[in-house]
Amino acid sequence: MDLFSRSWAALREAVAGLPDQDFARPSGCTGWLVRDLACHLVIDAQDVLITLVTPADTEPTADAAGYWHVAQEPPTGTDPLDALTVRLAAAYEDPALLTFHLDDVGAAAGRAAGLADPDALVSTQDMVLTVRDYLTAYVLEWTLHHLDLVAHLTGVPGPPAEGLAASRALLERIAGAPFPASFTDADALLIGTGRRPASDAETAQLGALSGTLPLVLG
């Protein structure tokens, strides 16, 4: 629960500190500028708020790893929801309006997470999870998008080390195998989710695991 809050606060703080010109730079998400990614984070924050007030009365059907669907193809940026995000982001025009909205809704999502009972059951995307597992899944979401945010920027702080480590551990559960110990947590996440290709040497270290990558999470 605390790791969710720290990861989310670090990501929002990084966005809040960006100069206006950085919002027009590319992000690590295919087809998205930084402003598009920031707009997606607003939508993510809304999803967190909605889920935390959507109680379930059945047993859990998924845990933090099972929350993630692994797609067969990487995103192209042309998915209708992705395209809508781009249009919404452009409608803000002034980056200050976008950062204000993210801070407003994002802070509310953070407060809601802090107040939630970790053992309570919530429903989202036809799944039932404990709040603890749901927020654990979102640590991976925040960490990956923090890496996306800084992918083409300089001087912007990256995700917290503890968030990177926890996200790597969760991705290894999803993959069903550990990444090589020589990989940094960031490299394991970037290579594991297809955000950057593995070098020949890294592919050799991955062994059989390389045949299952990338893990395109959705």
Rank of each mutant, 00 (worst) to 15 (best):
M1N: 10
M1P: 12
D2E: 14
F4Y: 15
F4N: 13
F4C: 04
S5P: 05
S7K: 04
W8L: 03
A9F: 00
A10G: 13
V15E: 07
A16T: 03
P19W: 10
D20S: 09
D20Y: 05
Q21L: 07
D22W: 04
R25K: 13
S27I: 02
G28W: 03
G31C: 10
L33H: 14
D36S: 12
L37I: 03
A38Q: 03
H40V: 01
H40W: 08
L41K: 02
D44Q: 04
V48C: 06
I50A: 15
T51Q: 01
L52Q: 12
T54S: 15
P55G: 14
P55D: 09
D57Q: 09
D57R: 11
T58H: 08
P60V: 11
A62S: 07
D63G: 07
A64I: 01
A65C: 08
W68P: 06
V70W: 01
P74K: 12
P75Y: 06
P75L: 15
G77I: 03
T78M: 09
D79T: 08
L81E: 11
D82E: 15
D82Q: 14
L84Q: 12
T85A: 10
L88S: 08
A91N: 06
Y92G: 05
Y92F: 15
D94G: 08
D94P: 04
P95T: 00
F100R: 14
H101A: 15
L102M: 07
D103A: 14
V105C: 06
A107L: 11
R111G: 06
A112I: 03
A112P: 04
A113Y: 08
L115R: 15
A116D: 05
A116E: 00
A116R: 00
D117M: 09
D117A: 10
P118M: 10
P118D: 01
D119L: 12
D119N: 11
D119W: 05
L121K: 14
V122E: 06
S123K: 11
T124G: 04
Q125N: 11
D126S: 12
D126F: 05
V128L: 03
T130S: 14
D133E: 13
L135T: 10
L135C: 01
T136Y: 02
A137Y: 05
A137G: 15
V139C: 12
L140I: 03
L140W: 04
E141T: 01
H145P: 12
H145R: 08
H145V: 14
L147W: 05
L147D: 11
L147N: 07
L153P: 01
G155I: 01
G155W: 11
P157K: 03
G158Q: 10
G158M: 08
P160S: 07
A161E: 15
E162M: 06
G163W: 00
A166L: 10
L170S: 00
E172L: 07
R173E: 13
A175Y: 09
G176S: 07
G176K: 05
G176A: 01
G176F: 02
S182I: 13
S182V: 15
T184Y: 06
D185G: 08
D185L: 03
A188R: 11
G192F: 02
G192E: 07
G192R: 02
R195M: 03
R195H: 00
P197A: 00
P197T: 01
P197C: 01
A198W: 07
S199I: 04
A201M: 00
Q205W: 02
L206N: 06
G207P: 12
G211T: 11
T212L: 13
P214M: 06
L215T: 09
L217Y: 02
G218C: 12
